[in-house]
Design a protein around this nucleic acid. Sequence first.
DNA 1: TATGAATGAGATTTCATTCAT
DNA 2: AATGAATGAAATCTCATTCAT
Lengths: 207, 207, 207, 207
Amino acid sequence: MVRLTREESQARTRSLLIEAARALISEKGFATATVRDIAEAAGFSQGAFYSNFPDKDSVLLELAERHQIEERARIEGALATAGGAADAMAAVEKWALTLNADRSFAALAIELQLQALRSPEFAKAYRALDRKHRALLGELIARLFVALGKRPPDDPAAIATGFAVLVRGMALQGGDTGASESGRVVIAFLKALIASAPDETPNRQRG
Amino acid sequence: MVRLTREESQARTRSLLIEAARALISEKGFATATVRDIAEAAGFSQGAFYSNFPDKDSVLLELAERHQIEERARIEGALATAGGAADAMAAVEKWALTLNADRSFAALAIELQLQALRSPEFAKAYRALDRKHRALLGELIARLFVALGKRPPDDPAAIATGFAVLVRGMALQGGDTGASESGRVVIAFLKALIASAPDETPNRQRG
Amino acid sequence: MVRLTREESQARTRSLLIEAARALISEKGFATATVRDIAEAAGFSQGAFYSNFPDKDSVLLELAERHQIEERARIEGALATAGGAADAMAAVEKWALTLNADRSFAALAIELQLQALRSPEFAKAYRALDRKHRALLGELIARLFVALGKRPPDDPAAIATGFAVLVRGMALQGGDTGASESGRVVIAFLKALIASAPDETPNRQRG
Amino acid sequence: MVRLTREESQARTRSLLIEAARALISEKGFATATVRDIAEAAGFSQGAFYSNFPDKDSVLLELAERHQIEERARIEGALATAGGAADAMAAVEKWALTLNADRSFAALAIELQLQALRSPEFAKAYRALDRKHRALLGELIARLFVALGKRPPDDPAAIATGFAVLVRGMALQGGDTGASESGRVVIAFLKALIASAPDETPNRQRG
DNA sequence: TATGAATGAGATTTCATTCAT
DNA sequence: AATGAATGAAATCTCATTCAT
């Protein structure tokens, strides 16, 4: 067994608490997940929670941050793959399906968004993070258009937001509309968007 | 003051409670809106709430039902407008913007969906209602394509679900992406979908 | 269907409510049986209850009264049988087993007693009724001794109280000590009491 | 003021709560004694109650356990006294009067029994405890008979149950039949039982 | 730093009772 | 007399948070 320095041990505690919080909040919602449950799921007492966070709200912000880091990693993973022209599409599909697979990831995203809608406090910190990501995803969308010889949309970030929203929302839709179908819907929308975009070369046009 | 029969008076109480519940649940979320708040906002005692609903959960179902009735009315309103070929598009745009305008409507829709995700009890009743509406919206989408001389998509209901999801999700996005912008995104997606659809056989037409 | 006069109809309502109260209070205890349950079990609304009784407490007194009337009937039934010397014993056994059979009867008796212990209000009315019955049962006991040629105990009412207590308590003991066994215990006590009593005439003797 | 370790302090809290529960449940009955009352009587908040017991029901079981422990102690105290032949009777009388003195003890016993009658949950745990005690009391009864040169009854435990029932029931009878009288009744029953028992064969003997 | 007993505020729910119909 | 919606008080239980250890 490795000896951890005091700092490492503390960081580990914190991390375990955050991951437990993520699982429980995704599953049950922020209001319904209790501090006791979170602490216990992480293997600690309630006190440990309050040694690491000033209050229950603040773990949500931490969670938002981690969520964003992971979303960014997913997008960047897709971007990296999208070197060649042909497989740019495949990269985006891969990204969409990745998100789609993890329903609790979507539930957490929604939970964060609702919280932002309701708590101006939380909103302030959350929006800043969120904007960055929509921009990044917009960049991916723009690259995709370019790779396919299409004119990128005026505001790729807006389109990207639409996609993020669509993916999350479809995931939420749950078992009713099968997961595979919900993936197909996202792809259908994306393909339509690409197909209807004008070619990069100026002499062709389409409404 | 008008004298109400007992039945009318009871129906009024119930209605006031439901509307208060709708406002508070949209605003604060289901878990955070308390029965006391709801009852007081409606101008009654907590006991009155429990004379009208067996428990807190069940008001949500009632709410879902009313929500669906209203969504249906909105869609049917748009369908009615969409008589002429040209303004079919306008009808759908109108519908999208209608939904968009009412952020609390979207918040409620999400809240219902989350609850369905988390409570199998609730899910069972909710899904049944939801399916009907997606089918109805699908019909609207199909008519739109026909009106525009395009081949309707394989599964209009699936596309419709995508739109409902998109509209709600964009509304949730909140003040960050302005409401108008979020409306534009939805329309952009819709136009792309239509533009990329193959034409119906050219010699058929419908007004 | 017979038409009831207004008075008969009212008496019937009252009676139905009391019987429903008896069943529920025996089963669940006074505190746990609700007015709504009682009224509904009788086939009426809560309001009907309050048209017949000033409050929940007062139905208990009515119940006590009926309970006493029935106990008296049981005892008098046994007394009537106990004409001959030999079957005096059989009569008492019959009485003991009668009571024993009806567990809910015992539960009600205990419930009334507890209430008397706790509410001086109730106690006052209850004790008066109770005393009469212990005296009556004492008379039965005395007759039994005489019939068997034994000197009756100093205070037959005290002995009678002991038996009533024993019978109720054993019934309460529930399924653990089988009902038949609990009957045997009562009889064993009674026989011992008789056997150990001195003969009435000084020159006769029995072990 | 003595410093208590955490464990001691916790045990003390628990104990105070249980004793407060005992007092209030004896006095007012289980359904009528509130958790708030119990906690306050013990000098704690309601929350403290729920830190120590999962729910209101479970304090009753704890109470039953303690009740049994004390009953056992009383019986064993009497058994210890009953060394010599002569004072065996005195020991039992002492026991009967001990129980008799404490009316609230009897009320609690009845309350436990009623609960066992009504809640199968509670019954299961309670019966197990109860059986042990009736067996123990049976042993005391048997020893008593032997000490007095009488043949013990077939089933001393059944007779013991009868006595426990009698003692509790008489205590419940309350102020109406004076406490002293109720004590006399119990002793009268016991003496009758002994007197009517056949002698042991003279050549066997036991202290 | 971590523990977890205890707090206190508040949540859901129940229920005896009232009162307009 | 009977109804049952509504009241208001109170009951059980939960939970974020504190604090002595």
